[in-house]
Amino acid sequence: MDLPFLLYTLLKIVVVVFALLTAVAYTVWFERKVVAHMQSRWGPTRVGPYGLLQPLADVIKLITKEDITPSGVFRLVYLAAPCLAVITALLVFAVIPFGPRTEMGGIDIFQITDLDIGLLFILSVSSMGVYGIALAGWSSNSKYSLLGGLRSSAQMISYELAMGLSIVGVVLLTGSLSLRQVVDNQSGSWWGIIPHWNVIPQFIGFFCYFVSAIAETNRLPFDLPEAETELVAGYHTEYSSMRFAMFFLAEYTNMTAVSCVATVLYFGGWSGPVFGPEALQTVLPLLWFFLKVLAFLFVYVWIRGTLPRFRYDQLMAFGWKFLLPLALANMVLTSFVQAVRYGG
């Protein structure tokens, strides 16, 4: 490991984190605006044109608020939990390829690192994500927080299984765990029109993945851990100021991460129509990637604006009795088809 390599990698990380935090701030704006229009309201309009500076105002408000630590909390865990939530949310982006391999001075600029076990890395990081929420709920010394934390750990354990199993279908089609190879495997098209995306042979897998991913990120209709009508704000009831903002940040970062992973696994990543002059060619894949991620974020908000919240027993029954068997069946079917195609 030489010095330039380390510096370049650090630079990439800084750029990705900076771009990501900006994107996450605007995801909040996007959600407020889209939900508002779905409910015949205007959403934020006051700060800047179309309320575009609203995220900035929110950040300033959150930073300058008083940070209250309630008495009787388990201090060390209470303070560490929001950091843990943000770190595990950000780590996923270490392996996401944002564009085709483009070298600059021998270093790939569109991906922080191309791990051979990229998919397993994402699964392991997201399996660690539950600790931030569970420990926050436990250490707050409050009944609402504890109930929220308990619900979230149970929910995340249940839906992680379905998520892992649905991804196996993609792995079977690709024959590799590296995210770059997953995308490369989806290049080209059938009869020149229909893109060679995994979502077409794997539509059951995609359904399982996206539903369990919504549950993993604690979004409506699976936001039982922070159901306002029962639990005040669930696991982050006792948090205020920047520590509350960190949970908020983690949630929206996770949403973005899920959208990126879904794009990479099922919708061909950065691939899309290529046109225009040479200079445009390097930027175009980034644009396609961005548009696909944006479409997923819109679906997230759309679902939030449309569906009511599940009851807790319905949530568990749906996860264990419907989604898990469906993901298993998809896995068996895919491996059977692959065996017939390549084996003998």
């Binding site: 392991s124 399996s127 660690m128 539950v130 600790y131 569970a134 420990l135 436990w138 308990l150 750990s153 149970a154 995340m156 354990i157 992680e160």
Partner: peptide, 11 residues
């Protein structure tokens, strides 16, 4: 271990 079994312990 770190993700599944320990989550159950903490739970």
């Amino acid at each position: 271990y770190a993700g599944a079994i320990m989550v159950l312990f903490v739970f």
